[in-house]
Amino acid sequence: MQNSHSGVNQLGGVFVNGRPLPDSTRQKIVELAHSGARPCDISRILQVSNGCVSKILGRYYETGSIRPRAIGGSKPRVATPEVVSKIAQYKRECPSIFAWEIRDRLLSEGVCTNDNIPSVSSINRVLRNLASEKQQMGADGMYDKLRMLNGQTGSWGTRPGWYPGTSVPGQPTQDGCQQQEGGGENTNSISSNGEDSDEAQMRLQLKRKLQRNRTSFTQEQIEALEKEFERTHYPDVFARERLAAKIDLPEARIQVWFSNRRAKWRREEKLRNQRRQASNTPSHIPISSSFSTSVYQPIPQPTTPVSSFTSGSMLGRTDTALTNTYSALPPMPSFTMANNLPMQPPVPSQTSSYSCMLPTSPSVNGRSYDTYTPPHMQTHMNSQPMGTSGTTSTGLISPGVSVPVQVPGSEPDMSQYWPRLQ
């Protein structure tokens, strides 16, 4: 039975679970980093996980050691009161100082060594604690504590007292930064006198190289990059290397530039699409467009005044059976039934097929058609009795279509119309 579990990581490298990497692998990681390889490249070359490479390099940059820390136990506290007071002093002298600059000053002034120097995250935590204590304490208590930490007896009751030896409130920041720059020169002199001055200088240079600022491109470089971006948004590694040799930039910087440029292009394309949609959409909808001609068919113009009344309900007709019959029939052209047409008796099958359309009241044959006459024609229609054979009435077949029909004066039988409509 094995005491430890061995495995293979996602890159194909072998590791022992819970145990640190061998010293030979750690040394190779540092050597590759000094030669300029990126952590992701080191991870692929040595088949070590990216997190492990970053952790080893980060500890090497901070402490200069590649040895693993002790497994188990607690780390001794490195942010001692003396170190905290120095950090507060540096922050007062130059409020814009960075944590890694404070760390360098602690090393250069001999406050800490490589073994007990606090990390950048520890210094940031100390600065946050100082800021929170400043908010919790009152103004007087804060000034007393700062005077105690600074070891001075001057008056701290006013704002300019934060910067000793100065009279203009805006000047101390520059003086403090100048003092810090002077301390940086002392850093070089002190570290050069040490035993491991060369190694420390190499480590600091490598650290500065990794902690780079934003790349500033010249106009020629920007023009070359934009020209390549117009050709393709995704250049391959050969195109990037050719462009890197042409404009004297690292291939990694060119790759990052193209990634950022593609993101910018997507944002601009989104804005262009929004403007295009806004320009195509009308600002207001016309009133006429809300009524579609496919839904509402136009009603033909009436030929006679009587045809303006298109349904039985508008003429005072309360018989719903006839109203439904007229509205359900398709529109037909106007025609006239003459008196000489043969009077065919209704076929029983045809009569039964339209039995649902006729009223059940037996008085329908005896009703006159003056009910369908509009009010303004009552006088004219009353002067001509319906009993004469020459009287013409208008029957409504569908809305908007008038059918003048000659009705025999002897017997106005409704059943004569249905064979004609089939």
Rank of each mutant, 00 (worst) to 15 (best):
Q2L: 12
N3R: 14
N3T: 11
S4I: 10
S4K: 11
S6D: 07
S6V: 15
V8F: 08
V8I: 09
N9W: 00
N9K: 02
G12C: 00
G12Y: 03
G12H: 02
G12Q: 02
G13I: 00
G13P: 01
V14P: 08
V16S: 09
V16H: 13
N17F: 15
G18L: 01
R19D: 03
P20Q: 02
P20F: 03
P20W: 02
P20M: 01
S24M: 09
S24L: 10
S24I: 12
S24R: 12
T25V: 09
T25R: 08
K28R: 10
K28S: 08
K28V: 06
I29H: 00
V30P: 02
V30D: 00
E31S: 08
A33P: 03
H34Y: 12
G36R: 07
A37P: 01
A37V: 12
A37G: 04
R38E: 03
P39W: 03
C40R: 06
C40F: 02
I42W: 00
I42G: 01
I42Q: 03
S43C: 06
S43Q: 00
I45K: 13
L46Q: 02
Q47M: 08
Q47A: 13
V48I: 09
N50M: 10
G51A: 13
C52D: 02
C52L: 01
V53P: 02
I56N: 01
L57G: 04
R59G: 00
Y60T: 03
Y61G: 03
Y61P: 01
T63K: 04
S65Y: 01
S65I: 05
I66F: 12
I66W: 15
R67V: 09
P68D: 00
P68L: 00
R69H: 11
R69Q: 06
A70F: 07
A70N: 12
I71N: 13
G72R: 05
G73W: 01
S74D: 01
S74I: 01
K75D: 01
P76W: 01
V78C: 06
T80A: 02
T80D: 01
S85A: 12
I87W: 05
A88T: 10
Q89F: 13
Q89S: 10
Q89A: 08
R92F: 13
C94E: 12
I97K: 15
F98D: 01
F98S: 05
F98C: 07
A99H: 01
W100T: 07
E101D: 06
I102Y: 05
D104V: 09
E109D: 09
E109T: 12
G110L: 12
V111L: 09
C112W: 03
N114W: 08
D115Y: 13
N116M: 11
I117P: 08
S119L: 02
S121G: 04
S121R: 03
I123N: 04
N124C: 06
V126T: 09
V126Y: 02
L127S: 07
L127M: 04
S132G: 09
E133D: 14
E133A: 13
K134F: 15
Q135W: 10
Q135T: 13
Q135H: 08
Q136W: 11
Q136M: 11
M137A: 14
M137I: 11
G138L: 12
A139S: 11
G141D: 15
G141L: 12
Y143C: 10
K145A: 14
L146C: 11
L146K: 12
R147A: 09
M148H: 15
